[in-house]
Structure formats: structure tokens, C-alpha cells
């Protein structure tokens, strides 16, 4: 669990939970967000239907450690475009995970595009939390001034 008091100068994990594309089904993203909060993370939670440019801007301005995308109705097809946009904005260091309905054939495409992990229906909240914690700890250092 992330240190919450800030007394050891470690930042709590900041994770962006968002949805791109056209679909708004957000039961999953809400449940995941609440669980991450309860694990001590700061969750920047957006309404659904974000533009890719908005997600990039958000990740940059909020200095996000890990991005979590929820995709249930084919919106995962846009994820490779998001990965390109993150790279162009100099945010290659921000790991991205995807959860939702992603057919196997498409999962391979997402992983090839740089997505770190795809969670399918039935994934446990603990597994999601552990993965995000691991990614944040290895990928992020506040004193990296780049």
C-alpha cells in the first residue's frame, strides 16, 4: 500500500482511470477506481468519452504514474493511436493498462502497441492493484526532471 501521509516524501501513486471513444459503460472503471483509492492511490477519474488528445494532456498535467483504460464496446481499437500520441508528447515512460472486453486477436495488437497489460472480465481487483503498483514503482521517480 502506498504511504499516505507524505511524511517519507514518497508520492502516493497517481493513476488515471479513463475511457476513450464512444462508449460510456463505467461500472467497471468505477469499481476499479474505488478499489485503487482504498489501496491508497490518488485516482484521477474522468467521465467517459475522452478524446485521445485530452487523455494525453491529462496524463501530462496531472503527472500520472500509470494510465488505466476501460474499453467495453470496441473502443480499444483506438488504443494504438493513444500510444502513438503519448509517445509524441514525450510520455513514453507512462505505462498503460487496458481492462474490458478485448478479443484475443486484438489483445496481441494492443500489446504490440506498447500496452503493458490487458485485463479481461473476471480479473480480480487485487491483481489489477498489484499490477498498477508494480508498474508505478518501476516506471516513476518524482525527482526525474527530464
Amino acid at each position: 500500500m502506498a504511504e499516505a501521509t507524505g511524511s517519507d516524501h514518497r508520492s502516493p501513486i497517481r493513476v488515471l482511470v479513463t475511457k476513450i471513444g464512444l462508449d460510456g459503460h463505467d461500472r467497471g472503471s468505477l469499481v476499479v477506481a474505488a478499489h485503487l483509492r482504498d489501496a491508497g492511490m490518488e485516482v484521477v477519474y474522468t467521465p467517459p468519452w475522452q478524446e485521445i488528445s485530452a487523455v494525453v494532456k491529462l496524463a501530462l498535467e496531472e503527472d500520472i504514474h500509470v494510465i488505466g483504460l476501460s474499453c467495453l464496446a470496441t473502443d480499444h481499437l483506438l488504443v494504438p493511436k493513444l500510444m502513438d500520441a503519448l509517445r509524441e508528447a514525450g510520455l513514453k515512460h507512462v505505462p498503460v493498462v487496458v481492462g474490458g472486453i478485448v478479443p484475443d486477436e486484438d489483445e496481441a495488437i494492443l500489446l504490440a502497441a506498447g500496452v503493458r497489460r490487458v485485463f479481461h472480465p473476471g480479473a480480480s481487483l487485487q491483481a489489477i492493484t498489484d499490477t498498477i503498483t508494480g508498474l508505478a514503482e518501476t516506471a516513476f521517480s518524482a525527482d526525474d526532471l527530464r
Binding site: 482504498d38 485516482v43 484521477v44 474522468t46 485530452a54
Partner: peptide
């Protein structure tokens, strides 16, 4: 949250319009 120290930062200015 006073318990976990975690937070949902959701009640924020909507990004939709100024996102770009």
C-alpha cells in the same frame, strides 16, 4: 479518504471541452 489516504479526483473541471 481519511482511511486510506487515497482519493478519487473526479469532481473536477470537465476535460471534455478544454481537453485539446
Amino acid at each position: 479518504s481519511p482511511i486510506s489516504g487515497g482519493a478519487i479526483l473526479g469532481d473536477r473541471v470537465r476535460m471534455g471541452e478544454h481537453g485539446g
